[in-house]
């Protein structure tokens, strides 16, 4: 009840731009649905190339999220809790990929991990490992672009969390690692989950760094966004179908995870 009354009280100067904002964000998605050749949908979906690209997208985005969790949660802890100097510089550096055009990220990855790159040439000489044009390169490109989303979310959750629980755990004799594992992590779990979802969604949509650094090969490096981009050059209807599939997968995942994991943040 009280909520409806609040809604009615939205000032017009806020209501009009807000409504325009909604239209701006939702209309392109509606346009996609209106133009979808539904009769061709089944045929397009049966194409093995579509399944291949979708599977690769889901697998690589999930691996990129796992890698981001392993590296990003500790990094967020360092940013939120450590008192080391230069922390703000560190934070700025870590968030650069957020504002960097992903293509630039792809070029940078090439210069470091490519066959002629600083680290890549050593990997090639010492172990015979080359990264570009492999699924590993897709995961690396996606992690580079998506991990900052996770770090920022988890750092925010850590800052908002009540540190008195950690202090109490310490006075009860828990070491810092035990405190992190048993107290801090459960406390910020919703923040970690939200960050992981953001990270996964960003990784799923990654295009620029992937096509630049990982290349484009069906089954190995051609993820859904790349398939959409190239399909648009020859067969726009196929591109629309692929886009709708990607849209459905993203929406389904976000809704599913929101109910299961993020419900608590909504209620808080």
């Amino acid at each position: 009840m009280s909520r409806t009354r609040e809604g009615a009280g939205v000032p017009v100067p806020l209501l009009v731009p807000a409504a325009l904002g909604v239209a701006f964000l939702v209309l392109p998605l509606l346009g996609l649905l209106v133009r979808t050749p539904w009769s061709e949908l089944a045929g397009q979906l049966a194409e093995p190339a579509v399944g291949e690209a979708l599977r690769l997208s889901l697998v690589s985005a999930t691996l990129a999220t796992a890698l981001s969790l392993v590296l990003g949660v500790p990094l967020a802890w360092v940013l939120a809790r450590s008192r080391a100097r230069g922390r703000s510089v560190l934070r700025a550096l870590v968030t650069v990929p957020l504002v960097l055009p992903p293509v630039v990220g792809g070029v940078a990855l090439f210069l470091v991990l490519g066959r002629q790159g600083i680290v890549g040439s050593w990997l090639d000489d010492a172990f015979g490992i080359t990264i570009p044009f492999t699924t590993a390169a897709v995961v690396i490109a996606e992690t580079f672009v998506a991990m900052p989303f996770l770090v920022i979310s988890v750092e925010g959750a850590l800052r908002a969390a009540d540190t008195r629980f950690e202090d109490v755990a310490a006075t009860l004799g828990a070491g810092r690692w035990t405190t992190f594992r048993r107290v801090t992590l459960p406390l910020v779990a919703p923040g970690v989950a939200a960050g992981a979802v953001l990270c996964w969604a960003r990784a799923l949509g990654e295009f620029g760094a992937t096509i630049t650094f990982a290349g484009n090969f069906p089954g190995t490096t051609q993820t859904m966004p790349l398939a959409v981009y190239l399909a648009l050059q020859r067969d726009p209807d196929a591109a629309i179908v692929l886009s709708v599939v990607l849209l459905a997968v993203s929406l389904a995942t976000l809704l599913l995870l929101r109910d299961r994991w993020l419900g608590r943040t909504g209620a808080a």
Binding site: F110, G114, Q116, F133, I211, G215, N216, F217, T221, Q222, Y229, L230
Partner: peptide
Amino acid sequence: DTYAEDVRSVLSLVEL
């Protein structure tokens, strides 16, 4: 091993 989006991208990969 990779299908580039245009011919100049292929050339760049060879040059690099």
